[in-house]
Computed example of a mutant assay.
Amino acid sequence: MRLRGTGAFGLALACVLAAASSGRAVTDAVKKRTVIDPASIQSVDRRGSKLPIELAFRDESGKQVRLGDLVSGERPFYLLLVYYECPSLCNLTLNAFTDNAKHSRYRIGRDYDVITVSIDPGEGPDLARDKKASYLEQLGQPEAGRFWHWLTGEETAIRKLADAVGFAYKYDPVQDEYAHSSLVYAFTPDGRLSRELPGIQQKPEDFDLALLEASNGKIARGIVDRIALVCYRYDPEARGYVLSALAVMKLAGVVIVLFIGTLLFVLWRREVRRARRRTTEAGVVDATPSDRETQA
Rank of each mutant, 00 (worst) to 15 (best):
L139K: 08
A144S: 14
L161H: 00
D291S: 13
L136R: 06
T262W: 07
L197C: 10
K170C: 07
R269Q: 11
R107T: 09
E74G: 08
H180T: 05
D126P: 00
R107A: 10
A245N: 08
A29T: 09
E155K: 00
Y84N: 02
D286E: 05
A157L: 05
D176G: 00
D206Y: 00
G122S: 09
S182D: 14
V44Y: 09
V65S: 03
E213W: 04
D235M: 05
R195C: 02
S88L: 14
K170M: 05
P76G: 03
G253Y: 12
D45G: 07
E154Q: 05
H180Q: 05
I119K: 02
L55K: 00
E60C: 10
D113C: 03
A252R: 09
G217H: 04
R110W: 12
T6S: 07
N100W: 03
Y169K: 08
V254F: 09
K218A: 14
G199W: 04
I219A: 00
G122W: 03
R273T: 11
Y171D: 01
P125E: 14
P125M: 13
E293C: 03
A19L: 15
S182Q: 13
L94F: 15
G283A: 13
P52L: 02
E196F: 13
D172G: 05
S215P: 14
G122K: 13
Y78A: 02
A18V: 13
H103G: 06
G140T: 04
D172E: 15
I158G: 00
E155A: 04
D69T: 09
L258D: 13
L55H: 01
D291E: 12
Y78D: 12
E213T: 06
V30E: 08
L79N: 02
T27D: 05
P121Y: 09
T34P: 02
R4E: 07
D286L: 15
L229M: 03
R274F: 03
G217F: 04
I36Q: 05
D111A: 08
G48S: 08
G240A: 01
N91Q: 12
V257I: 14
R192W: 11
R195I: 01
T116F: 00
L80S: 01
E54K: 04
E154N: 01
A25D: 03
L17A: 13
F167E: 00
G191Q: 01
R292N: 10
T6F: 13
D235A: 00
L55A: 02
Y84R: 05
T116Y: 00
L136K: 10
Q141I: 14
N100D: 10
A296Y: 05
A287R: 11
E205M: 03
D69V: 06
E60N: 07
T294Y: 08
A20K: 11
K160Q: 12
F167S: 01
E237T: 13
K170I: 04
W148N: 01
K160N: 02
N91D: 08
G253H: 12
R221E: 15
L263W: 13
F265D: 08
R292C: 07
E74N: 10
V272L: 09
A228L: 08
A186N: 10
F187L: 14
I115F: 08
Y185R: 13
D45I: 10
T116N: 06
A25W: 15
